[in-house]
Design a protein around this nucleic acid. Structure first.
Lengths: 364, 364
DNA sequence: GCGAATTTAGCAACAGCGTTGCGTAATAGG
DNA sequence: CCTATTACGCAACGCTGTTGCTAAATTCGC
C-alpha cells in the first residue's frame, strides 16, 4: 500500500501494521515484545493492540508469568480472520490457492488452461475455480481479494498485461479491471516472480532482509525484495534475470542478444547435464549478490524443483566460495518454503499485504 | 535518515522534507505547486512553509499574478542556508568539494595522497584540506557535516572501512568515528558509487526514478537508487557490478572468478580498443536493465569520462536496440551532471539528505 | 499469613500534527 | 464602487502517540 502524504491517520495504519508484522514473525507475542521490536511506548502498543483485538485480527492466547509481578497477556494472530485467493497463471495451467492471514496455504488446485487461452477463457477458469474452493462461500466478508501472478511483461500499477510471452491473445489487456468486474472482488496483478518473493517475505514478517526469488520454469526470472518492499522497477518490469548475458559469444537467445543466462542454462539442461545447468544458474546468482548484496536467495520453479538438491548444492557452493570475504557477507540459500504454491500463494499475500502490510510512503 | 517507529513528530519532518524536495525539483514554487505535488491541504502547506521560512531554508521570491484574484507568493530554496563538505577518497587522491543545499558545487580541489596512506594520513589530509576551503570558517553553523565516499568493502551503517581494495592499512578501521573526533563535525561514510548516485538523485529532487550510476575508474562499480533511496544491500556492500560474470570461460579475475565484466573490459581497454570496452560495459548495463528495470543510467568515472562520447554512444545504442519492447521501457542514458566531482559531491549531499531529505521508515 | 517489591496494564491529561470552517486580503472586471 | 475570484491564515477540532500516575496481579521475605 502506497501513499505520498503523511497525515495522522497514516500513523495509525503504520504502527498497526508494525504490530501485525511482529505477529507474523513470532506467532505469539506480548506487549513488551512489540515495544522492543518497534520502539513504541508501552501505552501506544496497548492502544494498537486494543484496536486490533476489536477488529478480530489478533486475540489473547494465555498469559506468561514473569517469575515476579503481574502476568503478561500473550497475544497471537488470528489466522482465519482474513483470507485471500491467489492465482498463478502459467502458459498451460492455472493454480488457485486459499491463503490465510498468517500466510498458510489452506487449499491448492491446478487446472489446465486451453492452449493459447483468451482473456475470457481465463476469467471463466478463475471464477469456476474459485467457486470450487470448499467453503469459499462462507468466507465472504473475510475474503480480502484475489491476487494474480503472471508472466510479463505487464504493468503492475495499471493492472495491464502488456505482452505476455508466448500468448497470442494477450496484448494490452486490462486484466485487473476485467477480473474485478467478473469476480466482484478486488484484484491485484503482478509478475509471477514478484508475487513469489512476496510470499517468502510475508511469511517471515519483519525479519526479512534484501532477497531474491529465482524461478526456473520455462523461462528464468528473479523476483526482488529490497528495503522492505517488492522491487518492481521503473516500468514494473524488473525480473528478466534470465535475459542477462553471461557468455558474451554464446548462442543467440529469443530476446535478440547472445549468451543469455537462460539460453546457456537451457542448452545444458536439454543436454541432460543438470549439474552444469545448475552451475550456470549459480553464476548468475552470484552476479546478483555482487551487484545487490542480498541476504537471502530462494529457489523455486517446477524445472528447478525437479532437481532441487542439485540446484541447491550448486548455488550454495557458489555463494560460499565465489563471494570474496564470505565470512561477513553471509547469504542464506533455501528452497521455496511453499514449493509449487509460491507464486499463487504470494499473489494472495500481496492482497493481504495491501491491507495489513506495513504501508509504503511513495516518493513524490 | 531512517527510523522504525512513526510518532506524530515524524509527520512534521516528513512533510517538511516533501516541500524541500519540491524546492529542489523546480527551483521556484508556490503553495499550490506543493499542494498538487503532495496532496497536502493548502492549510497544511502554509504551516510547513511558515516553519521552513522561519528556519531560513526557503524564502519568498516575488509574486505571481494569476490574472484575477490575490497574487500568489512565490518561494524558492535558499541555497546558501546550509552547506556540506564532501570527500572522495581514491587510491592516490583526495578530492574535496563544498556543496550547498541546492546541490551546487561551490569549490573543488584535488590533492595527492601518499602511496598506501594510513588512516592518520587521511585524517590529516582531510582537516588541512577543509581548512583550505575559502570561507570555510564563517560557514560554521551552516555546515551540516562531512561526507566521505570511498572504495569498499565498508560497512556504511557502522561507519567502518572493512577492507578497502588495494590499501594495506585499511582493515576494520572505524573511519566515521575517527573523522568525527578529528574534524569536530558529523561524518557520513559510504561507498563511492552510492554517494555518486545520491548526487544525481538529490539534485533532481522528487522526480528521480530507479537509477544506477556506473563508474569506471580503476575498478567498475554501480551505485543504485531504488524506490526513492540509495540501495546498499544487506551488508551495505552492494555495487560490485564489475565482478559480475559476462564471459563464462573468460580470463581469471582478481576476485577469483572467470570472465568478470571488469577484467573483460580492462583487457579490451588496455589493448586500446575502447569501442569494444564500451560495448562490453554496455552489455553489463543492459543486464542491469533487464534485472532491475531502471529509468536512468548515469555514466561516471575518470577512465570512462576520458572517452565519454564512445561510452555514451555504446551504452545508448545497446539500451535502445537490445532491450525488447524498448518503446515503453524507456531509459535515459546520460553522463554524470557533475563530471569528476560526482562522488565527492554526492557524499556531501548524503549529509544534507540525512537532515533535509525525505526520511525513510526502516523495516523492523 | 501478610506486607513489600516487582512487573504489567490502563486511565487521564497533554502536545503536536494535519484538517475543517470560515473570515480576510488583494486583485481584475464591470 | 461593487462583485467575482483567487490566495492566505486564524481558530477550533479530531486524531495520533506521549507522559504521569494509579491499579491490578503476582512473588518473595519475614
Amino acid at each position: 500500500m502506497t501513499r505520498t502524504t503523511a497525515d495522522v491517520t497514516f500513523l495509525r495504519g503504520y504502527n498497526q501494521a508494525l504490530v501485525m508484522a511482529v505477529g507474523r514473525t513470532v506467532r505469539t507475542f506480548e506487549r513488551s515484545t512489540v515495544v522492543d521490536a518497534t520502539g513504541l511506548t508501552p501505552q501506544a502498543v496497548s492502544k494498537v493492540i486494543a484496536r486490533l483485538t476489536a477488529d478480530g485480527l489478533i486475540r489473547p492466547a494465555g498469559v506468561r508469568r514473569p517469575g515476579i509481578g503481574k502476568p503478561a497477556i500473550v497475544y497471537e494472530l488470528v489466522p482465519d480472520s482474513r483470507y485471500a485467493i491467489g492465482a498463478h497463471v502459467a502458459r498451460r495451467t492455472l493454480r488457485l490457492v486459499l491463503v490465510d492471514l498468517a500466510g498458510t496455504v489452506h487449499h491448492s488446485t491446478v487446472s489446465p488452461l486451453p492452449g493459447d487461452f483468451t482473456p475470457a477463457q481465463l476469467l471463466d477458469a478463475l471464477s469456476s475455480g474459485i467457486d470450487a474452493i470448499p467453503g469459499s462461500t462462507d468466507l465472504r466478508g473475510r475474503l480480502t481479494g484475489v491476487g494474480i501472478g503472471m508472466i510479463g511483461p505487464l504493468d503492475h500499477a495499471r493492472g495491464l498485461v502488456r505482452d505476455a510471452h508466448g500468448l497470442r491473445h494477450w496484448h494490452d489487456i486490462p486484466l485487473r479491471e476485467l477480473a474485478e468486474a467478473h469476480l466482484g472482488l478486488p484484484v491485484h496483478l503482478d509478475k509471477d516472480v514478484t508475487a513469489g518473493i512476496t510470499a517468502e517475505a510475508w511469511r517471515h514478517g519483519g525479519t526479512f532482509g534484501d532477497a531474491v526469488l529465482i524461478m526456473v520454469e520455462s523461462g528464468i526470472g528473479g523476483g526482488f525484495w529490497l528495503g522492505g518492499t517488492a522491487h518492481r522497477g521503473a516500468h514494473t518490469n524488473a525480473g528478466e534475470f534470465g535475459h542477462t548475458v553471461v557468455a558474451l559469444d554464446g548462442p543467440p537467445c529469443v530476446c535478440g542478444r547472445h549468451g543469455c543466462l537462460e539460453i546457456v542454462h537451457h542448452h545444458a539442461a536439454e543436454a541432460g547435464d543438470i549439474e552444469r545447468a545448475a552451475r550456470v544458474l549459480a553464476v548468475g546468482v552470484v552476479n546478483l549478490l555482487q551487484t545487490l548484496d542480498l541476504s537471502r536467495v530462494v529457489l523455486a520453479g517446477a524445472d528447478l524443483l525437479r532437481h532441487a538438491d542439485t540446484y541447491l548444492a550448486a548455488v550454495e557452493e557458489a555463494v560460499h566460495t565465489d563471494v570474496p570475504r564470505a565470512d561477513w557477507l553471509t547469504t542464506d540459500v533455501t528452497l521455496s518454503s511453499l514449493g509449487a504454491d509460491v507464486i499463487a500463494a504470494g499473489a494472495a499475500m500481496q492482497v493481504l499485504d495491501q491491507h495489513y502490510g506495513v504501508p509504503d510512503l511513495a516518493p513524490l
